[in-house]
Amino acid sequence: MNQPLIKARDLHKYYPVKSGFLQADKSLQALSGASFDLYAGQTLAVVGESGCGKSTLARLLTLIETPTAGQLTLDGIDVSMAADAATKKQLRQTVQMVFQDPFGSLNPRQKIGDILQEPLIINTNMTAEQRKQEVLTMMARVGLRDEHFHRYPHMFSGGQRQRIAIARALILKPKIVVLDEPVSALDVSIQAQVLNLLIELQQEMGLAYVFISHDLSVVQHIADQVLVMYLGKPVEQGASEAVFSNPQHPYTQALLSATPQANTERKRQRIKLIGELPSPLDPPSGCSFHPRCQNATAQCKTTAPVMEQRGDVSVACLLVK
């Protein structure tokens, strides 16, 4: 197979946190040790609860922040090596992003046409007429009409705004799109429309998606690979069918059983997760999941597991053999 569009090796991101006067600064381990390959036309879903490092991963992939450690290669270019402006520009055109909240991600004081032209103004030398043509073509592709060009974002519904955001992400013809919970702020009937649009665009343009979500039913539908994270660490990773049909890590199992399904027969035989998410500032010793894990042993409290291949998937758990 050809080379992966994203090659992430052991990505880490720490944030320094001031913990008060005369006290040593702590570091917040927002992401520790994410590795994956993503090929054109494939979707990697990153799943987990709040504080699991999903958004940090998105910020690293979109070059808003640089990793503290680890290697990130986008479309064959090592991000840490890209120092000159031209390479940076090229990298930026490779990765684009769609945000969760379609109400916050569009500048309320700009017209749709100006919002969509902005990436072209910054990154290309097109004339105004060419830009407009390009924007109108893209608008038509995501299901917006020409007359929307001169309107302001507040005149659109959530679903239409998300279409605008998708158009903005795709206008530079990127190869990778990071989708940060792209449908979770939308109504059910609109969710399906936007997901369909994303699937069609992926097939047409051969895009690689990094799909960040907490909604497992959506993930199951759209993903090729799944990366489950807990407190900044990957706990399970593998092909979508393998993870969903036979989850190995106790956290994945709990997450799956906690997700409600539109099925009246299935009345709660849930794996109960006790307790809350621990603070990422003060993660538990050993396996960070052990305080909430049903199967935790004495060893789990002291030894941190590492990701190991177990059958079809990689799992970070001492008890999965």
Partner: peptide, 23 residues
């Protein structure tokens, strides 16, 4: 009926059964 069909778990094939239009 449309709302239930639009759920990802009730999809047949690649695409979901979306409800066209908006509220």
């Amino acid at each position: 009926q449309a709302l239930l069909r639009a759920l990802p778990e009730h999809s047949q094939g690649e695409l979901l059964n979306a409800i066209p239009g908006v509220v």
